[in-house]
C-alpha cells in the first residue's frame, strides 16, 4: 500500500512539471524513480521512456510501465490516474476561464514567459537523457542523424526510432 501511495505522490508531482511536453519532467522523473525510490535503474528508465516514444497517443504512457513494473496492474492504474487527473482538472478549469480572459493584457506575457522556461526544461531533459543514452561516439552519431532527418523531412518519427533500435541490434551483433 505504501508503494501505491508513493507512486501516486511521485506521478502527481511529475505531472505538474510537464509544461511544454513530457520531456520537461524527465530530469525529475529520473531523480525520483531511480535515485530516490530505486524503482528502476537508469538504463531501465531510458528503455521505458524510449519505447514509450513508439506507443500511440500521449508520449508519456510509460508512466503506466513504471507503475506496472513496481506494483503490477494496480501500480499502472495509480500511476496513470495520478499523472493525468490533476493536470486534467486544471486544464478543464483554466480552459473555461482562459477563453474569457482572451483580452487580458498579461496573457501574452504568461504565454511567452512560460514558453521559454518550458524550452529550457526540455533542453535539460535532453541533456539528462543524453548522458545515459549517448554512451559513445557511435550513439552520438546515431542521435545526430535522427535529429537532422527529422528536422529536414516530414517523415513519421516512428520510422527513424525503430531504425535506431535495429541499428542498436547490428551494433550488438558486431560487438561495437
Amino acid at each position: 500500500m505504501k508503494e501505491l501511495g508513493d507512486i501516486a505522490g511521485v506521478f502527481a508531482y511529475l505531472s505538474l512539471l510537464t509544461i511544454g511536453g513530457g520531456m520537461a519532467a524527465f530530469p525529475e522523473l529520473k531523480t525520483l524513480t531511480v535515485d530516490v525510490h530505486h524503482w528502476v535503474t537508469f538504463p531501465q528508465l531510458l528503455h521505458f521512456y524510449s519505447f514509450g516514444q513508439l506507443a500511440p497517443g500521449p508520449n508519456m504512457m510509460m508512466v503506466a510501465s513504471i507503475g506496472a513494473f513496481v506494483a503490477g496492474l494496480p501500480g499502472a492504474a495509480v500511476a496513470l490516474v495520478a499523472f493525468f487527473l490533476p493536470t486534467g482538472l486544471l486544464t478543464f478549469a483554466v480552459g473555461r476561464l482562459w477563453t474569457r480572459m482572451s483580452t487580458w493584457r498579461w496573457r501574452p506575457a504568461i504565454q511567452t514567459g512560460l514558453g521559454s522556461a518550458a524550452v529550457g526544461l526540455v533542453l535539460a531533459g535532453a541533456i539528462v537523457m543524453g548522458r545515459g543514452a549517448l554512451i559513445n561516439v557511435f550513439y552520438i552519431a546515431l542521435a545526430v542523424v535522427v535529429f537532422f532527418l527529422l528536422l529536414r523531412t516530414k517523415i513519421n518519427p516512428a520510422y527513424p526510432i525503430v531504425a535506431s533500435g535495429l541499428i542498436g541490434l547490428v551494433a550488438h551483433a558486431v560487438n561495437l
Binding site: P43, L46, S50, Q53, A143, A163, S164
Partner: peptide
C-alpha cells in the same frame, strides 16, 4: 532498446 534511446534523444 538502447538504439531506440539514442534515436529518441535526436527526436
Amino acid at each position: 532498446l538502447h538504439g531506440i534511446a539514442a534515436g529518441a534523444v535526436g527526436l
